[in-house]
Amino acid sequence: MPDAGVLATILLIVGLFLLALELMVPSFGMIGILSAIALLVSAWSAWQAWWGTSPGFFWTYAAFWLLGIPSVLGGALFLLQNTSLGDRLVLRGPRAASKSTSVQEQNRLEALIGRVGEAQSLLTPGGMVTVDHERYHAESPGMMVESGTPIKVVGVKGNRLVVKVHDPNQAVKAPASAKGSDSKADPLADTIAAVDLTDAVTDDDEDTSASLDFDIPED
């Protein structure tokens, strides 16, 4: 069996380690209970080892015991809040940006509406696009867009651009469609013109018949 002083030192280190681990690992309080047991047994072992024979060692141990607990708790909280280790252990929401920064970013994204760019990754529907030589998060609702496909910004959703596939020939097809619509109206116009022409021919025949002053003999 180890000496009481050695046991007190080992259990103090183990208890403080378990106390820090309790803040980082969800255990429903089990690690915290083990930490409390280790610290209490360590204090009892230190009292048995040094109280009557070496008071200086005992009070040094007591200082480490009393100062170690808040120091470990503070150090663990600092690691959780300010290091990448804490980002992996704790699920945090996005950090709130200032209102002015959000408004400026929103205005900058809205200024891109109507611009043409290119998909830098597969949009499924979210991904990355390039507009004016800058990369942006974007999404294409309703369909997947292959990387390298020309896109056009049609809106803004939060901090993302809403894009759709851009067809460079769309402007060329528009006049053609207009021509097609005109051609649909042409048959009606042609019908009206044909009726007018028929009426005109009929009127001319009546006038010609009325101008004859003799009867045409019948066979």
Rank of each mutant, 00 (worst) to 15 (best):
A189R: 09
V90D: 08
V14D: 10
T202K: 13
G74L: 13
Q106D: 10
P141T: 04
L18T: 00
D167L: 02
G56T: 15
P141I: 02
G52P: 10
L39C: 06
G142W: 07
I192S: 03
K179L: 15
G155A: 11
Q170D: 03
D215V: 13
L109M: 01
L91N: 13
D203C: 12
G158N: 09
T83R: 07
D182N: 09
G180K: 06
L7G: 11
A8L: 06
K152R: 15
S42N: 03
T9F: 01
T9H: 08
A96W: 06
D87G: 06
E139D: 14
V6N: 03
I10Y: 07
A178L: 15
S147R: 14
S177N: 07
D204Y: 09
V145F: 00
P141F: 05
L39R: 00
L11N: 02
W44S: 05
P217S: 11
A62W: 06
P125I: 06
E134S: 15
L16A: 00
K184H: 11
I13C: 11
A200L: 10
V165A: 02
T198F: 04
Q120I: 01
E22V: 01
A38W: 04
S102G: 12
G148Y: 03
L34F: 09
S102H: 12
G29M: 02
L212T: 06
G15Q: 02
N107T: 13
E139H: 15
M1Y: 00
M24P: 02
T53C: 10
E118F: 10
I113D: 10
I113L: 07
S183I: 12
V131E: 01
L66P: 07
D199W: 14
T130A: 15
A8V: 04
P70A: 04
R160C: 06
Y136F: 15
A200V: 10
F17Q: 01
Q48H: 06
F57H: 14
V153E: 05
L123Y: 04
L80N: 03
E22W: 00
A38V: 06
S54D: 13
D132V: 05
S183E: 13
A176R: 14
D199F: 15
